[in-house]
């Protein structure tokens, strides 16, 4: 019994494949838990969806599509352009500085509900001041590398 137990517990890990040892354990746990959840949570939920009592998440929900997808598009464009512009002025942080200005302004407009003159002016000022301040303090004063 004793020796049976200890041989059951003994394990030898080949160094060459040791990077897969722990992930494999995690995969098994994940699979087990997923099966449990499938049975106890997802199945009753899908049944409820079929009966029309509940809605599917994300696809079945109402949303402000313009602002939601606008946000995603803006962020993707922001990240992408920052690197592109930054590459034109290597390691000056200008990519961050200029693209941030455009991004802050457009996102502010995207989320703005009341288009008053005052709101637009504050947005413009914020869009110029905030990135400049961040750029000056971090890139210039602290010499942090920015895109």
């Amino acid at each position: 019994m004793e020796s049976g137990l200890s041989s059951l517990l003994s394990v030898s890990i080949d160094f060459e494949t040791s990077h897969l040892f722990f992930p494999r354990i995690i995969h098994w746990i994940l699979a087990g838990l997923f099966a449990l959840i499938l049975v106890t949570k997802v199945a009753p939920f899908m049944a409820a969806v079929k009966r029309g009592e509940r809605k599917l998440p994300i696809v079945g929900e109402a949303r402000d599509s313009f602002r939601f997808f606008g946000t995603l598009v803006l962020i993707v464009a922001y990240f992408y352009l920052m690197a592109v512009v930054g590459n034109m002025f290597p390691y000056t942080g200008y990519g961050f500085l200029f693209v941030s200005m455009g991004f802050v302004l457009l996102m502010a407009f995207l989320y703005m509900h009341e288009w008053t003159k005052k709101a637009v002016i504050t947005a413009v000022i914020t869009a110029i001041v905030a990135p400049s301040l961040a750029w000056f303090v971090l890139a210039k004063l602290f010499k942090i590398t920015l895109p």
């Binding site: 002025f89 200008y94 455009g102 302004l105 457009l106 407009f109 110029i128």
Partner: peptide, 22 residues
């Protein structure tokens, strides 16, 4: 339209700033 106008003016201001800084 307002925003487009603003964008161009901000953009050109930024460009000028860039030139002067660089």
């Amino acid at each position: 339209i307002v925003s487009n106008k603003l964008m161009t003016s901000v953009g050109s201001a930024a460009l000028m700033a860039a030139l002067s800084v660089s």
